[in-house]
Write a protein that binds this DNA or RNA. Structure first.
Lengths: 220, 220
DNA sequence: CGAACGCCTTGATCCGGATCAAACCTAGGG
DNA sequence: CCCTAGGTTTGATCCGGATCAAGGCGTTCG
């Protein structure tokens, strides 16, 4: 179930510029979610499309037996929740305290019908998601644990515009469920990257990229 | 490099109906490719979008060290080669003798600009690809070898409209590179499914689904 | 018809990552 | 400030699938 919209706060200007900014920029609800709060659930009506204003979001699916696969992490400026069908195929949760913008799906398709640039923007959004998903497939299908962890760190750095020091908004379990690994393997891999001097781990949720080119080399 | 267009044969009416049929149905080149022939290569200009008329196509990427990940299999009616950027991100090859229809990317975007239904059809195509890719992620991230193979067989059956007996157009290596496994594991898994009576393997490229519901149960 | 190549299956062994099990932080709450 | 609980790290062991290595087909071509 969709969590109730709590407050219509002004949003921080952290989001990327996209072709949909005209829409998402319109006055409207800017709900906030606390850490681990559900934004929407798998199987619910997909009435809205979302954009992260601040914070970070995970979208995931769960198998019958409880195995979880995180589909994607979404950072400030990223869109999520756009579906082909009327139902959400994944669950979305805030990873940290998060603010999002929402637009009615109907409004979006009206806009797409009226304006070619909006239609193109929607295509771009979807195609970007597809590219990311294809990269994810390559990662899960043909990369070792170490390559996956390195790839994730670089990806987070890029998408949060971090330089060397980065804030990791997700738990080890989140990383594991994104990378198709276990928490133990993620943890061990991080410490071994630290032992090799490629990264430093000042705290659990902070990583310093000490040898970025070595990490990039692993990303093959 | 794009293989030369060989013959403009009439196409077989095997393709699905989609919103782009008006476009793809227009008179135009219908090139044929023999088994294992390249249709386009990674990094080439993405000037065309394709639709499989008959046969089957694989799209894949290769890592520096030669590891290959098959991104997707495409069957009659399926579209492929639509890119966000100007360059193909994957290589496409015919898995069997294959006929495809082609449309210029420019023509497609012109059409999308003029007609809302065409824009919607392009969105649908991309979003379907995204859904398939997300399912692929779930498969690679959180499923066992046995579940992956069962899932692939059911997927092929569905997409080729096969009932119980199906034609597998791909080699064991193709299956392995799609499923993130090795040929040995694929082979062993198929024989163990056969030993359990879930499938029969009259020949290497033919599979009979003998207990479809049991296979579906594995797909969790 | 027979040879030979390419794919597939099967067997033996190995290893990366999973699982099981403690200990160890560290942020919150009293 | 200490206590507690969850998340994290680390250790020991296990196992599913990879790797290494032969054999079996079909299939094509001489």
């Amino acid at each position: 179930m969709l969590s109730p919209i709590r407050t219509a706060k002004s949003f921080e200007p952290t989001a990327h510029v996209t072709g949909l900014d005209a829409v998402f920029g319109m006055p409207g609800a800017c709900p906030r979610f606390v850490r681990d709060e559900e934004i929407f659930g798998e199987g619910e009506a997909a009435d809205y499309v979302y954009q992260v204003v601040s914070g970070a979001v995970r979208t995931y699916r769960i198998l019958r037996d409880g195995r979880r696969q995180i589909d994607e992490f979404h950072f400030a400026g990223d869109h999520f929740g756009l579906e082909l069908s009327d139902l959400h195929r994944v669950t979305a949760e805030a990873m940290t305290d998060t603010t999002v913008r929402m637009i009615r799906r109907g409004a979006l398709s009206d806009l797409a019908a009226q304006r070619g640039d909006a239609a193109r923007a929607i295509f771009r959004l979807t195609a970007e998601g597809l590219q990311r998903s294809q990269d994810h497939v390559l990662m899960l299908g043909r990369r070792s644990a170490c390559e996956r962890v390195a790839g994730l760190l670089l990806d987070i750095a890029e998408r949060t515009h971090a330089k060397a020091e980065l804030d990791v908004p997700m738990s080890r379990q989140d990383m594991a469920d994104y990378l198709g690994l276990t928490i133990e393997t993620v943890s061990r891999t991080l410490t071994s990257l630290q032992d090799e001097g490629l990264i430093a781990l000042p705290t659990v949720r902070h990583v310093v990229l000490q040898d970025r080119s070595a990490l990039e080399r692993m990303t093959a």
